[in-house]
Amino acid sequence: MKRRRFFKSLAVVPAGTVLLAQQPATQPAPTPAAPPAGRGARGGRGGGAPAAPPAAVPDIGITAVGEQVQKFFTATQFATLKRLADHLHPAENGDPSAVECHAPEFLDFLLSVSPAPEQATYRVGLDLLNSKARTQFKKAFADLDAKQVDTIIKPLVVAVPWAWALPKDPGERILYVANRDLRTAHRNSREYAEAGIASGRRQPFPQAFLLPVDPTYKG
Protein backbone atom coordinates (compact mmCIF):
# COMPACT_ATOMS: atom_id res chain seq x y z
CA MET A 1 0.00 0.00 0.00
CA LYS A 2 1.28 3.44 -0.85
CA ARG A 3 2.10 5.39 2.26
CA ARG A 4 -0.22 8.27 1.48
CA ARG A 5 -3.13 5.93 0.93
CA PHE A 6 -2.34 4.15 4.16
CA PHE A 7 -2.44 7.32 6.24
CA LYS A 8 -5.66 8.32 4.52
CA SER A 9 -7.28 5.08 5.61
CA LEU A 10 -5.94 5.46 9.16
CA ALA A 11 -7.57 8.83 9.41
CA VAL A 12 -10.95 7.22 9.15
CA VAL A 13 -10.40 4.23 11.39
CA PRO A 14 -12.49 5.29 14.35
CA ALA A 15 -11.93 4.93 18.08
CA GLY A 16 -15.06 3.08 19.03
CA THR A 17 -18.08 5.22 18.48
CA VAL A 18 -16.55 8.50 19.56
CA LEU A 19 -15.51 9.55 16.11
CA LEU A 20 -18.38 7.78 14.49
CA ALA A 21 -20.89 9.95 16.26
CA GLN A 22 -19.57 12.81 14.19
CA GLN A 23 -20.54 11.16 10.96
CA PRO A 24 -23.76 12.11 9.20
CA ALA A 25 -26.80 10.05 10.15
CA THR A 26 -26.95 8.39 6.79
CA GLN A 27 -24.54 7.90 3.96
CA PRO A 28 -25.37 10.15 1.00
CA ALA A 29 -26.87 8.05 -1.76
CA PRO A 30 -24.73 7.94 -4.89
CA THR A 31 -26.26 9.70 -7.82
CA PRO A 32 -26.55 7.21 -10.65
CA ALA A 33 -25.69 8.27 -14.15
CA ALA A 34 -28.70 8.75 -16.38
CA PRO A 35 -29.10 5.73 -18.65
CA PRO A 36 -29.41 6.16 -22.38
CA ALA A 37 -33.10 6.54 -23.25
CA GLY A 38 -34.78 3.28 -23.98
CA ARG A 39 -31.68 1.14 -23.66
CA GLY A 40 -29.86 -0.89 -21.08
CA ALA A 41 -26.86 0.55 -19.34
CA ARG A 42 -24.57 -1.11 -21.86
CA GLY A 43 -26.63 0.20 -24.68
CA GLY A 44 -27.46 -3.25 -26.03
CA ARG A 45 -30.95 -4.13 -27.18
CA GLY A 46 -32.62 -6.05 -24.40
CA GLY A 47 -29.31 -7.45 -23.12
CA GLY A 48 -26.46 -6.54 -20.80
CA ALA A 49 -26.92 -5.01 -17.39
CA PRO A 50 -30.28 -3.47 -16.52
CA ALA A 51 -30.70 0.23 -16.75
CA ALA A 52 -29.60 2.16 -13.68
CA PRO A 53 -32.49 2.78 -11.27
CA PRO A 54 -34.09 6.18 -10.96
CA ALA A 55 -32.46 8.50 -8.43
CA ALA A 56 -34.86 7.60 -5.61
CA VAL A 57 -36.80 4.35 -5.49
CA PRO A 58 -39.63 4.73 -3.02
CA ASP A 59 -39.49 1.97 -0.40
CA ILE A 60 -41.93 1.88 2.48
CA GLY A 61 -40.28 -1.23 3.92
CA ILE A 62 -41.68 -4.72 4.32
CA THR A 63 -42.65 -4.14 7.95
CA ALA A 64 -45.16 -1.53 6.81
CA VAL A 65 -47.19 -4.02 4.79
CA GLY A 66 -49.15 -7.10 5.74
CA GLU A 67 -49.04 -8.88 9.08
CA GLN A 68 -46.31 -10.92 10.66
CA VAL A 69 -46.83 -14.64 10.35
CA GLN A 70 -46.52 -16.24 13.76
CA LYS A 71 -43.83 -18.90 13.75
CA PHE A 72 -42.85 -19.90 17.24
CA PHE A 73 -45.42 -19.64 20.01
CA THR A 74 -48.64 -21.61 20.20
CA ALA A 75 -51.75 -19.47 20.23
CA THR A 76 -52.05 -19.90 24.00
CA GLN A 77 -48.39 -19.10 24.66
CA PHE A 78 -48.62 -16.01 22.48
CA ALA A 79 -51.77 -14.82 24.24
CA THR A 80 -50.03 -15.34 27.58
CA LEU A 81 -46.99 -13.35 26.45
CA LYS A 82 -49.21 -10.56 25.14
CA ARG A 83 -51.05 -10.33 28.45
CA LEU A 84 -47.76 -10.26 30.31
CA ALA A 85 -46.41 -7.55 28.00
CA ASP A 86 -49.50 -5.44 28.49
CA HIS A 87 -49.20 -5.77 32.26
CA LEU A 88 -45.46 -5.17 32.59
CA HIS A 89 -45.05 -2.50 29.91
CA PRO A 90 -48.32 -0.60 29.55
CA ALA A 91 -48.79 2.65 27.67
CA GLU A 92 -47.68 5.48 29.91
CA ASN A 93 -46.64 9.10 29.75
CA GLY A 94 -47.79 9.31 26.16
CA ASP A 95 -45.67 6.38 24.99
CA PRO A 96 -47.26 3.37 23.32
CA SER A 97 -47.36 0.08 25.19
CA ALA A 98 -45.18 -2.91 24.39
CA VAL A 99 -48.18 -4.52 22.75
CA GLU A 100 -48.81 -1.44 20.62
CA CYS A 101 -45.14 -1.60 19.62
CA HIS A 102 -45.61 -5.24 18.58
CA ALA A 103 -42.97 -6.41 21.03
CA PRO A 104 -44.65 -9.84 21.47
CA GLU A 105 -44.75 -10.34 17.70
CA PHE A 106 -41.09 -9.43 17.47
CA LEU A 107 -40.21 -11.92 20.22
CA ASP A 108 -42.11 -14.60 18.32
CA PHE A 109 -39.78 -13.97 15.40
CA LEU A 110 -36.66 -13.71 17.60
CA LEU A 111 -37.43 -16.94 19.44
CA SER A 112 -38.10 -18.73 16.16
CA VAL A 113 -34.42 -18.27 15.26
CA SER A 114 -32.98 -18.63 18.78
CA PRO A 115 -31.04 -21.54 20.28
CA ALA A 116 -33.02 -24.29 21.99
CA PRO A 117 -32.32 -23.24 25.63
CA GLU A 118 -33.81 -19.77 25.05
CA GLN A 119 -36.79 -21.31 23.29
CA ALA A 120 -37.35 -23.68 26.19
CA THR A 121 -37.27 -20.83 28.72
CA TYR A 122 -40.22 -19.20 26.96
CA ARG A 123 -42.22 -22.31 26.13
CA VAL A 124 -41.91 -23.83 29.60
CA GLY A 125 -42.33 -20.52 31.38
CA LEU A 126 -45.40 -19.33 29.48
CA ASP A 127 -47.06 -22.72 29.81
CA LEU A 128 -46.39 -22.55 33.55
CA LEU A 129 -48.00 -19.12 33.87
CA ASN A 130 -51.05 -20.33 32.01
CA SER A 131 -51.23 -23.44 34.14
CA LYS A 132 -51.10 -21.36 37.31
CA ALA A 133 -53.92 -19.18 35.99
CA ARG A 134 -56.03 -22.24 35.25
CA THR A 135 -55.37 -23.68 38.69
CA GLN A 136 -55.92 -20.50 40.66
CA PHE A 137 -58.61 -18.71 38.64
CA LYS A 138 -60.00 -21.34 36.24
CA LYS A 139 -59.17 -19.02 33.39
CA ALA A 140 -56.46 -18.64 30.79
CA PHE A 141 -53.68 -16.26 31.80
CA ALA A 142 -54.65 -14.07 28.86
CA ASP A 143 -58.10 -13.57 30.36
CA LEU A 144 -56.97 -12.53 33.85
CA ASP A 145 -57.59 -9.05 35.16
CA ALA A 146 -54.71 -6.95 36.48
CA LYS A 147 -55.18 -7.99 40.10
CA GLN A 148 -55.19 -11.67 39.15
CA VAL A 149 -52.06 -11.26 37.05
CA ASP A 150 -50.36 -9.63 40.03
CA THR A 151 -51.38 -12.53 42.24
CA ILE A 152 -49.62 -14.96 39.93
CA ILE A 153 -46.49 -13.04 39.00
CA LYS A 154 -45.59 -11.25 42.23
CA PRO A 155 -44.13 -14.34 43.93
CA LEU A 156 -42.13 -15.03 40.77
CA VAL A 157 -40.39 -11.66 40.55
CA VAL A 158 -37.00 -12.02 42.23
CA ALA A 159 -33.86 -9.90 42.36
CA VAL A 160 -31.24 -10.95 39.82
CA PRO A 161 -28.04 -9.18 40.83
CA TRP A 162 -25.93 -10.98 38.23
CA ALA A 163 -27.61 -10.96 34.84
CA TRP A 164 -25.66 -14.02 33.66
CA ALA A 165 -26.98 -16.21 36.47
CA LEU A 166 -30.63 -16.54 35.63
CA PRO A 167 -33.07 -17.97 38.18
CA LYS A 168 -33.36 -21.74 37.94
CA ASP A 169 -37.07 -21.83 38.80
CA PRO A 170 -38.90 -21.73 35.42
CA GLY A 171 -41.50 -19.27 36.70
CA GLU A 172 -38.93 -16.87 38.11
CA ARG A 173 -36.86 -17.30 34.99
CA ILE A 174 -39.63 -16.44 32.51
CA LEU A 175 -40.59 -13.38 34.52
CA TYR A 176 -37.03 -12.04 34.46
CA VAL A 177 -36.27 -12.97 30.84
CA ALA A 178 -39.59 -11.91 29.36
CA ASN A 179 -39.57 -8.62 31.25
CA ARG A 180 -36.02 -7.91 30.03
CA ASP A 181 -36.69 -8.89 26.42
CA LEU A 182 -40.05 -7.15 26.21
CA ARG A 183 -38.46 -3.97 27.53
CA THR A 184 -35.75 -4.08 24.83
CA ALA A 185 -38.17 -5.02 22.05
CA HIS A 186 -40.49 -2.22 23.24
CA ARG A 187 -37.89 0.53 23.64
CA ASN A 188 -36.05 -0.39 20.43
CA SER A 189 -39.17 -0.36 18.30
CA ARG A 190 -39.89 2.14 15.58
CA GLU A 191 -43.22 2.99 17.19
CA TYR A 192 -41.59 3.92 20.51
CA ALA A 193 -38.95 6.05 18.77
CA GLU A 194 -41.52 7.87 16.67
CA ALA A 195 -43.74 8.52 19.70
CA GLY A 196 -40.78 10.11 21.48
CA ILE A 197 -40.04 12.35 18.53
CA ALA A 198 -43.68 13.27 18.03
CA SER A 199 -44.10 14.33 21.66
CA GLY A 200 -40.79 16.18 21.69
CA ARG A 201 -39.68 14.27 24.79
CA ARG A 202 -37.01 12.13 23.17
CA GLN A 203 -34.73 12.51 20.22
CA PRO A 204 -33.33 9.09 19.42
CA PHE A 205 -29.77 9.01 18.17
CA PRO A 206 -28.54 6.49 15.67
CA GLN A 207 -25.49 4.41 16.46
CA ALA A 208 -22.60 3.39 14.29
CA PHE A 209 -23.29 0.08 12.59
CA LEU A 210 -20.32 -1.79 11.20
CA LEU A 211 -21.17 -3.33 7.87
CA PRO A 212 -19.77 -6.74 7.03
CA VAL A 213 -16.24 -5.66 6.13
CA ASP A 214 -15.64 -8.50 3.74
CA PRO A 215 -17.47 -11.48 2.48
CA THR A 216 -16.79 -14.57 4.54
CA TYR A 217 -15.35 -17.64 2.96
CA LYS A 218 -16.53 -20.97 4.20
CA GLY A 219 -16.21 -24.62 3.42
Binding site: L19, Q23, Q27, L110, N188, S189, P206, F209, L210
Partner: peptide, 21 residues
Protein backbone atom coordinates in the same frame (compact mmCIF):
# COMPACT_ATOMS: atom_id res chain seq x y z
CA UNK B 1 -8.16 -2.77 6.71
CA UNK B 2 -11.22 -1.06 8.15
CA UNK B 3 -12.33 2.10 6.46
CA UNK B 4 -14.49 4.26 8.70
CA UNK B 5 -16.33 5.92 5.82
CA UNK B 6 -16.82 2.84 3.69
CA UNK B 7 -17.57 0.24 6.32
CA UNK B 8 -19.85 2.05 8.77
CA UNK B 9 -23.26 3.66 8.59
CA UNK B 10 -25.43 5.09 11.31
CA UNK B 11 -28.61 3.24 12.13
CA UNK B 12 -31.38 3.16 14.69
CA UNK B 13 -31.94 -0.08 16.57
CA UNK B 14 -35.33 -0.53 14.93
CA UNK B 15 -33.66 -0.52 11.52
CA UNK B 16 -31.65 -3.63 12.38
CA UNK B 17 -32.98 -7.10 11.61
CA UNK B 18 -33.04 -8.08 15.29
CA UNK B 19 -33.95 -4.72 16.90
CA UNK B 20 -30.56 -4.54 18.61
CA UNK B 21 -30.70 -8.01 20.15
Amino acid sequence: VLDGTRDRVNKFAYELPYRGF
